[in-house]
Design a protein around this nucleic acid. Structure first.
Length: 589
RNA sequence: UGGGGCGUCGGCAAGCGGUAAGCCAUCAGGUUUUGGUCCUGACAUUCGGGGGUUCGAAUCCUCCCGCCCCAGCCA
């Protein structure tokens, strides 16, 4: 287990450093067991990917286990739609869970533990209203005051909790509270709620229950039940850690008193046999992910979807896992991103450029190359016979022959990119202009001989002559050309729609906005550019939905998984542009 | 100003008393049938600030400053 006897490796995150120390101290007998515990009330986003990579990554690195546990303790917010999508996203990211339990699987056990806490004098049923409880909680500076129901006898509490469970009470009528300390400086410890009454149908347990356990009670105990060793969550739960420990410690203490289980020896034996009994879990917190130019809070993401600012959870502009997937991001690129950003405790915001770098790097290696013109203008090769055609064989990948080749037809009339021609080109413009010779990629050198404009001054047609001696795109005489252009033969061109995505917001930080505004006010009205008359080479006509590829000189694209229909309608989503040093030159002058 | 955390390059992030890793971004070159890729080089005398301990401090002590989290019967 210790192939690194000299302590933590350089660069290792603090979580793994803790695990190394625990292993050194033989805290869990070498076991490492984590869990990723989403509430199924929304779709997973890139922030969850960070947590997934951490939890599953730790399990992988230490030959341990990681559970995918659904924290489904609030029936009014949760739905099976979300559990399905979460499973799909975790799998797509490339991880396999050890087990896939639901907190609701433990409702019976949890209920018994609640009774146990009452028997231990650690919990009581409070009949104060929600408002009264809030008022008596005190403030950040002032201590709270005890509930008048705080010292009810055990039997009365037990009776009340059983009535709660039996449905004898209405929502909000009373609540089960931990008896801790109403004067605790940490407000989380001022007799927090353990169980509330909710006459609601749960997506899995139906109407079996009308009382549901709260997060803090459920989470630590579920960890203990599953034998979790390291319970990793985000920073905002730091204040909950003492309560997490209180719940787990109280359970452990109760398990040392088998007499309290008199009527339920079976449950006692089951709980006492759990690995988490003697090797209790501990919680550790890391900083959640923030990325420039987007929002990563579930509430905001839901709002974007519900108010129709995006087409859905999988809109390619969404920072959701399914959004990135549809946009063309690969699981490898997302995992690489999570590895690169690290795990620490300082609040931070990672630049979107880091993510873009990760996809570009992955796709550069793996995406086959094709030619496609998104803003077409006609190029006529005047000295190329009308009835002639060349078929050029081009490699699908410039650095990897194993990708093979495809054939691309070349004729007298071609589509080229409007941006590749300038009537009066500046010195640093290496593309086509009157009298200039450029290369048509893998085809011929051509020299511009003229062009036409319409009444508005738009270029309508460009004319050129080709040099037959430059077939394949190179010249034996060694003469060089500055630019290489992509092109598509007009008679063979296949029409396609390209969806070019940009920033969803007009600001780098939609989370902090001017007073009186919300992040919605910063939505970029031009975040997607749909170009429906693009022309692409014939090889693309049958491309399967979801395929990643590169349009040479333009960017990485992905055949849309919903609207792209091979042979019928081609729809390509832009995953990322290629790095563009010409754009920089234009910008900086 | 109750409690809990955090402050190292433009953005992430190592560092754990021995004299500031790496990545992204940026800039400058080279290669190139993608202005892509690739390659080379530059990029913190300084670690939020002030004191102190030490031969030696980003690392220890101390005071100060700044930012984040907590008063759901949400998670």
């Amino acid at each position: 287990m210790s192939n690194k006897p000299d302590g933590p490796e350089k660069g290792k995150d603090f979580i793994r450093t803790i695990i190394d120390k625990d292993n050194e101290a033989d805290k869990y007998g070498g076991r490492v067991h984590t869990r990723f515990p989403p509430e199924p009330n929304g779709y997973l986003h890139i922030g969850h990917a960070k947590s997934i990579c951490l939890n599953f990554g730790v399990a992988r690195d230490y030959q341990g286990k990681c559970n995918l546990r659904f924290d489904d303790t609030n029936p009014t917010k949760e739905d099976v739609e979300y559990v399905d999508s979460i499973r799909e996203d975790v799998k797509w990211l490339g991880f396999t869970w050890n087990a896939n339990p639901f907190a609701s699987d433990y409702f019976e056990k949890l209920y018994f533990i609640a009774e146990l806490f009452i028997k231990m004098g650690k919990a009581y049923v409070d009949h104060q209203s929600a408002d009264e409880i809030r008022e008596n909680r005190g403030t950040l500076k002032e201590p709270g005051t005890n509930s008048p129901y705080r010292d009810r006898p055990v039997e009365e509490n037990l009776d009340l909790l059983r009535k709660m469970r039996a449905g004898a009470m209405k929502d909000g009528e009373c609540i089960l509270r931990a008896k801790i300390d109403m004067a605790a400086p940490n407000i989380m410890l001022r007799d927090p709620a353990l169980y509330r009454i909710k006459h609601a149908t749960h997506h899995r347990t139906g109407d079996t229950w009308c009382i549901y356990p709260m997060y803090d009670f459920t989470h630590g105990l579920s960890d203990a039940i599953e034998g979790i060793t390291h319970s990793i969550c985000t920073l905002e739960f730091e204040n909950n850690r003492p309560l997490y420990n209180w719940c787990v410690d109280t359970l452990m203490e109760g398990l040392r008193q088998p007499e309290l289980f008199d009527e339920n020896a079976a449950i006692y034996n089951e709980l006492a046999a759990l690995p988490g009994f003697n090797q209790r879990p501990y919680q550790y917190e890391f900083a959640r992910l923030n990325i420039t130019g987007t929002v990563l809070s579930k509430r905001k993401l839901i709002q974007l979807v519900q108010e129709g600012h995006v087409s859905g959870w999988d809109d390619p502009r969404m920072p959701t896992i399914c959004g990135f997937r549809r946009r063309g991001y690969t699981p490898e690129s997302l995992r690489d991103f999570c590895d690169r950003i690290g795990v620490a405790k300082a609040d931070s915001t990672v630049e979107f450029a880091m993510l873009e770098h990760c996809v570009r790097q992955d796709l550069n290696e793996r995406a086959p190359r094709y030619l496609g013109v998104m803003d077409p203008v006609r190029l006529v090769i005047e000295n190329y016979p009308e009835d002639q055609m060349d078929e050029f064989t081009m490699p699908l990948h410039p650095e990897d022959e194993s990708y093979g080749k495809r054939t691309v037809p070349f004729t007298r009339e071609l589509w080229i990119e409007r941006a590749d021609f300038m009537e009066e080109p500046p010195k640093k413009f290496f593309r086509m202009g009157p009298g200039r010779e450029v290369r048509l990629r893998f085809a011929y050198y051509v020299t511009c001989t003229g062009f036409d404009k319409d009444a508005d001054g738009n270029i309508t047609e460009i004319r050129a002559t080709y040099d037959p001696a430059t077939k394949g795109g190179w010249s034996e005489d060694g003469r060089k050309v500055k630019g290489t252009l992509h092109w598509v033969s007009i008679p063979h061109a296949v029409q396609a729609e390209m969806r070019n995505y940009g920033n969803l917001f007009t600001t780098d930080n939609p989370n902090s906005v001017e007073e009186g505004k919300t992040f919605i006010d910063y939505i970029n009205p031009d975040s997607v550019e749909v170009l429906d008359t693009c022309w692409v080479e014939p090889a693309l006509a049958d491309m399967a939905p979801g395929t990643n590829f590169q349009f040479e000189r333009t960017g990485y694209y992905c055949a849309d998984t919903k609207d792209h229909k091979p042979g019928e309608k081609l729809v390509f989503n832009r995953t990322a542009t290629l790095r563009d040093s010409w754009a920089k030159i234009q910008k900086n002058g």
